[in-house]
């Protein structure tokens, strides 16, 4: 488990960038934290780290967006946002299962705590917390290979 306190976006970007360099395909990133905690900011920086040139925008209303990637074996980023789900949904219900099974796809989920049945393996949890003004706490914990 790693814990960071960032004082501005730049520092958050650095944490996300560093995570990007250590990513492997077939992993799942579960982001949690309240409104404005910085989840989308984190994904934007992660995407930059993966060499994605498209602008990452919030997927809140459309539930998920996909971006082509060319990074190690990763060919596709699926950016999911569960904010609008009001009950705990099944990953398959929102059409995610195929992506989770695809080794060339990296799935990143905002508001992942709204989902019930995240896979136990290859899961990276990123918890973000608002500490006042531009200060954020970021806790990264992972269960790799299981």
């Amino acid at each position: 488990m790693q814990e960071f306190v960032t004082n501005n976006i730049k520092e958050t970007n650095k944490v996300a960038n560093d995570l990007a360099t250590s990513l492997e395909s077939g992993q799942l990133i579960a982001l949690s934290g309240n409104l404005g905690a910085g989840k989308t900011v984190f994904v934007k920086a992660l995407a930059v780290g993966l060499g994605i040139s498209e602008t990452i925008t919030s997927p809140t209303f459309v539930l998920m967006k996909s971006y082509p990637v060319n990074y190690k074996q990763i060919k596709q980023l699926i950016h999911v946002d569960c904010y609008r789900l009001d009950a705990s949904e099944d990953l398959a219900d929102i059409g995610l299962q195929d992506f989770l099974d695809d080794p060339q796809t990296l799935v990143v989920i905002e508001w992942a705590d709204k989902l019930d049945n995240l896979p136990k393996n290859n899961l990276i949890n990123v918890k973000m917390e608002f500490l006042g003004q531009d200060k954020r706490k970021i806790v990264i914990s992972s269960k790799l290979v299981g």
Partner: peptide
């Protein structure tokens, strides 16, 4: 041009939530 992060309607909804 377009939004680089949240959409307008999304911002309204999230402010309502806050």
């Amino acid at each position: 041009g377009s939004t680089v992060d949240d959409a307008v309607g999304e911002a309204f909804d999230k402010v309502a939530k806050l």
